[in-house]
Structures are given as C-alpha cells and as structure tokens.
Design a protein around this nucleic acid. Structure first.
Length: 594
RNA sequence: GUCCCCGUAGCUCAAUUGGAUAGAGCGUCGGCCUCCGGAGCCGAAGGUUACAGGUUCGAAUCCUGUCGGGGAUACCA
C-alpha cells in the first residue's frame, strides 16, 4: 500500500476538470511536516491562484470539496494561506496495519513495471588494499541493489575491477626494481601495496614546480611505469606472466572484505576482461567520425571549450574511457538493461558526462545511464583522505576495530545487567561472534548509509563505530527489546499473525506507530526514486523513536484487556518486522539478543 | 583561466526537491531504574541557513554578485 500514491491519485481525480495539468498539482501532496497539520498536506491551492484566480483558501475549499474521502480520510482542513491538511481515518489505518501484518512483504507490492538495472559499484583498484574510500561505493551500491530487487526490479550487479590500468604499470615497475622478495613471500598483498605506494612517491618527488603538486608526466619513472602498462596491453609475455601471478592475491584480498560485508556480485568483470574489445571500439568510433587522431592520440571532442576525452594514448595504451565504452556495449548486448547505474565518487562527474555523451553519439540512446555520485570522505582537516598521503585507513583494520568495539560493548552491557540482577543467558562463542559482527559491521555501514550520499563527510572513527543515537545499534537494540517481549510472554508470533487480531488505535502513540507503518512503502519508493539509502535510515529512525515512545507509554504484556494486548503485540511484531526488513535492505543484520 | 559541487546549532549531519514556527545525533545542563532489557526514555539551552541583492503568496532550496572551501580540466583510474 503506497499511501502517498493513493492520495495523489485521489487529488488528481479531484483536480481533473478543474485545472489544466492535474498531475503536476497532484504531485504537490506530501507527508505533513508536523503532526498538528494532519498526516498529509496538499500544497497546490496557492500556486493555482494564477490559473484559477481568486483566493487560495477559497480554491483549497473547492478542491477539498471534490475529494473522494471514502472510508480513508477525515474531512480535510484548510489552514494557513491555503494548505489542505489530510488526516487518515483511524479505522482505515487499523485495517491497513492488519493487512500489512498478514503479508510477507509488509504491504509493499512489487512494482507494476519492473526494470532491469545494471549496478556498477565498488570497483576497487585491486593493486592495493581496500581503504575507507571504497566503503561508500560498496555499501551504497549494495543497498541500492537490495532495495531495487525488493521492489521487484531485476538487478544485475557487476564489480568492474581496476585490474588493467596504469596502477599495474606502477606495480610492474615496482616489482622489477624495488621488490622485497621475502616480504612478497610472506604477505604478497601487503608487499604489492607497498610497491604501489613507493613508486607513486618516487614520481611525486620529482614533480614539477607549477603550483599544485602533480605527478610530472615527464618523470622518468612515470614514463617507465607507463611503458610497463603499454607493454602489458601489447601482450608482453613477462608482464602478462607477472600480472597473472599478482591477480589471485589481489582477488583474495578483496573477497575477504566482501565476505565480511556480506556483499556479493553477480559478475566481476574487470577492465582486463574488456581488453580484447578495445581496439574494435576505437576503430568503430573513428569510422563513424566520432573520434579522431589528435597530437598522436585518439580523442573525442565535445566543443571548443571542453577538453576532449582520450580513448587511445600516444603510446598505444587505452584509457578507462575506452574500457567503459566497451563495457557499456557488452552490457547492452549481454543483458539489455533499462538502466546502468554507476555508484562512483562525484569527482568523476566530467568523465561520466563525456562517456554518456559518446555513448549517445555512438547510437545507444535507449538505455538510461546514471552517475550515482557521492561525496568525498574527508579527514579531520576537512581535506579528502588520499591514499598517497598514507592517511587512509584500511578497510580490514576498520572492520576489525568495529567488531572489537561491539564485543567490548556487549561485555560491558552484560556486566551491567548482571549487576542489576537480571538473568542473562549464556551464549555460545558462535552466537557471540554473530552478535559482534552484526553490531560492528552494522555500525560501520549505517554511519555511511545514513548520510545523504551527495554530501562529503568527515571521517570520524568514533562516529563510525558509535552505537548510540541514530545508529544501526539503536535499531538492532529496539528489535532485541521487542523480541524480548515475545520471549517473556511466550508468544507464538506466527499464530499471532494469522489471522491478525483487530488493531486498536486508542492512544496517540499507537496511532503514530500505525501511521509510520503505512509510510514504509512511501519511504522505500522515495529511496528508490532518489537512489538514496539515507531515506530508509531516516524512516527507520523515526519508526524506532515512535516505537520507543509507544513502548514507554503503552504496556503490552500487561495491557488492560486481552484485545488490547493482542493488538499491541501485533504492533510490536510489525515494528520488529519492518525494522528487520529495513535493515536487511541496507545490508545490516538483526540479532535476537545483544 | 574555464566548468562543477559545497557553505545550516559548539561538532557531525537532515530538511520529503519552492511550503507553515529550519529538524536530529553527539557534546553540555536537568530529570527517570520496586514497571515488557538504561546500547533506553523525558526535558532544557543552543540559528541573521557564509554575505549582499533579486524572483513570488512563500526561499536553506531558484537567479545575480561577493567571500570562503573542495573537485575536475589531453595521455592516472
């Protein structure tokens, strides 16, 4: 039940025959900002003054009178300059809650017209260990995949690994000149990471004097590294052999992280996979007159002002633009998606703008291409954390710390409960590990997902591991306490759900909770439309707070009547299920105890 | 130089895309454990939404300018 949609359709019906473009004005119906303004508000009367003339409040009256209230709505109220405030009838709300309780999907029907999405996310350079900078793409992309799938879309996830670019040239150069054989023997991944950083630093030292520090392209090491890349791309036997030797280690390292994060890909087709197709892409773009030779390279121009995009460098090596073009063609041929989403750092905005432009000129104009951009992770100094500066925190270490922190917190709480005289069950080592991981990884994911992806954010170790306030832990804890009620009361939840008991909405807490339930679908729809997981966390936070308030004021097991107790148990159960489902869509697990 | 993004409470962030008195968390201060788990609840203080104009019924949001920060910009990805 998508309540917002339903109301907008009602409003549109009321506007039809009254105004020229009912759909536009119907869309101006929103959830009310404050409870005293009702549940939803229609804001279309004021702007309609232009078309209809006269007083906005009068227009609001006219529209309100045309609304089919049926059994859904109380009589509308006109307020302020001409807001139409709508309140759902509590009986209707109660019915909806019962319906949700009897539905595995919690009232969220699959979309009528499923689309096929390819989601390109995470995509780390595998030549170096993953760090906090990779977290956003990985976690946001995974959450979007889960969300779109749940809504009924077909989703294909593809990890477009950076396994063929310049960084491998640096690695090859580093391997040949600076290798610590013993270190490579004992920890190949770490040694490869060291070589990468080392080579980059070598280049930086000789960097030019023109203002900002940049890697000097004429630096001999930079040239040598580029030459290694070019040799690799040209099929040089030695470089290919080394590349093949490196890959399993690189792969193993990132897989370890993905397993911990519970992130899985349908496909992992890295840049190297497309390497055989690149020459053909360049040839085709040249033939069609889209690309041309310039200064020894092959480029695509966009206009007099804008810099061109290189698709083949002077030394013959291809660029990531070329690879991305081949990738798009492959994906279209293979999967015929309606949309391809790129969950990538905002700094690549120009790249994607140019890339999409080329794709259109190439003739692929049906597929929707979208750069789902996100802001930088900043250091405490508000400057982007950059790997080269060595300031980045490795993802593995971050996750270790998160789990350790969760364990500390669990033990501390457990001790407090014992001192309080509560009965605390003995959990097995395995159960404890499950709790530590759910809480620890949940904290890290939630800290990232709860922020609007478009804004930068300051990386803060404590905040990311925090388990108070608007965090995954708060949500998991609300769930645990909720389940505690059922344990304590010896309630069979499955029996409670079918058929669901009548729902009684007497107190304001109960009604607010019910209203929050029926907004679940709205929240998911909004999150999917904007591709913003923080709209889900925001919803869950409101739900959990509403539930806490309900929990505080409305006794459940000790409710005055059997009917009220059954009704409140159902509200509890539904809260738990919505929280669990909501967290699941974010890739965060719930536990029964913590 | 050109283009893009950003500037909101002490700190970190929201604000349903132009709606009503700009909201949360953390931190600070004050309450709540004979009551379904205190990782909690209730309350208080804290704001000229960087600044100056403009657009209209209405602006944190749109337009112009200024200041400040970040990013991109032909051979990194």
């Amino acid at each position: 039940m998508n309540v917002l949609n339903l109301l907008q359709r009602k409003l549109q019906d009321a506007l039809t025959g009254l105004v020229s473009d009912p759909a536009v004005y119907a869309a101006m119906l929103k959830p009310a900002q404050e409870a005293r303004f009702g549940d939803y508000q229609a804001n279309c009367a004021m702007p309609l003054k232009k078309e209809l003339g006269g007083d906005a409040r009068q227009i609001a009256q006219t529209i309100a009178a045309r609304l089919q209230l049926e059994d859904m709505l109380e009589p509308p109220a006109i307020a302020g300059p001409g807001f139409i405030n709508l309140t759902l009838r509590s009986e209707w709300l109660a019915q909806q809650v019962r319906h949700m309780a009897g539905d595995d999907r919690l009232g969220v029907a699959p979309v009528e017209k499923p689309r096929t999405f390819v989601i390109d996310f995470s995509s780390p350079n595998v030549a170096k260990p993953m760090h906090v900078g990779h977290l956003r793409s990985t976690i946001i992309g995974d959450a979007l995949a889960r969300l779109l799938r749940f809504l009924g879309h077909q989703v294909i996830t593809d990890n477009h690994l950076g396994d063929w670019g310049t960084q491998f040239g640096m690695l090859l150069y580093g391997y040949k000149h600076f290798l610590d054989a013993q270190a490579f023997q004992s920890d190949p991944v770490r040694e490869l990471a060291r070589l990468y950083v080392h080579v980059r630093n070598q280049i930086k030292k000789t960097a030019g004097a023109q203002g900002d520090e940049e890697e000097d392209p004429n630096d001999p090491i930079a040239q040598a590294a580029r030459a290694e890349t070019a040799k690799l791309h040209a099929g040089d036997a030695e470089n290919l052999r080394l590349w093949r030797a490196f890959m399993p280690y690189c792969y193993e390292e990132i897989e370890r992280i993905y397993r911990r994060l519970d992130v899985h890909f349908d496909h992992t087709l890295g840049e190297s996979f497309y390497q055989p197709m690149l020459a053909d892409v360049v040839r085709e773009l040249c033939q069609r007159g889209i690309a041309q030779e310039s200064e020894g390279a092959v480029v695509v121009f966009f206009g007099a002002e804008e810099s061109p995009a290189l698709i083949q460098k002077r030394d013959g090596a291809y660029t990531y633009t070329t690879t991305d073009l081949a990738t798009i063609r492959y994906r279209l041929q293979q999967w015929n998606p309606d949309a391809i989403l790129y969950v990538v750092d905002f700094r690549q905005g120009l790249h994607f703008k140019q890339l999409f432009d080329i794709v259109r000129r190439w003739g692929y104009d049906k597929v929707e291409l979208k750069h789902v951009s996100f802001g930088s992770v900043l250091g405490a100094d508000r400057k982007p954390i950059k790997t080269r500066e060595g300031g980045a925190i490795e993802l593995g270490a971050l996750l270790d710390e998160a789990v350790a922190q969760a364990a500390r917190r669990y033990q501390q709480t457990r001790q407090e409960r014992i001192e309080r005289g509560e009965e605390v069950p003995e959990l097995t080592a395995e159960e404890l590990e499950q709790i530590y991981q759910a809480v620890g990884y949940g904290a890290v994911k939630y800290a990232d997902l709860s922020q609007n992806r478009e804004s930068d954010y300051v990386f803060n170790w404590d905040k990311m591991l925090s388990m108070e306030g608007n965090t995954a832990t708060y949500m998991q804890y609300a769930y645990v306490r909720n389940r505690g009620i059922f344990r304590k009361g010896g309630i069979d939840v499955l029996a409670l759900r079918q058929p669901p008991p009548p729902v009684i909405l007497q107190t304001s807490e109960e009604r607010t909770l019910a209203l929050q339930f029926v907004r679940f679908h709205d929240a998911l729809a909004a999150a999917a439309a904007e591709l913003k997981p923080n709209l889900i966390t925001g919803y869950l936070w409101d739900l959990a707070k509403t539930y806490s308030s309900f929990f505080q004021n409305c006794p459940v097991l000790k409710a005055e009547t059997v009917e009220l107790r059954q009704s409140r148990l159902l509200l509890c159960d539904l809260t738990a299920r919505v929280i669990q489902r909501g967290l699941d869509l974010l890739g965060i697990r719930t536990v029964e105890r913590m």
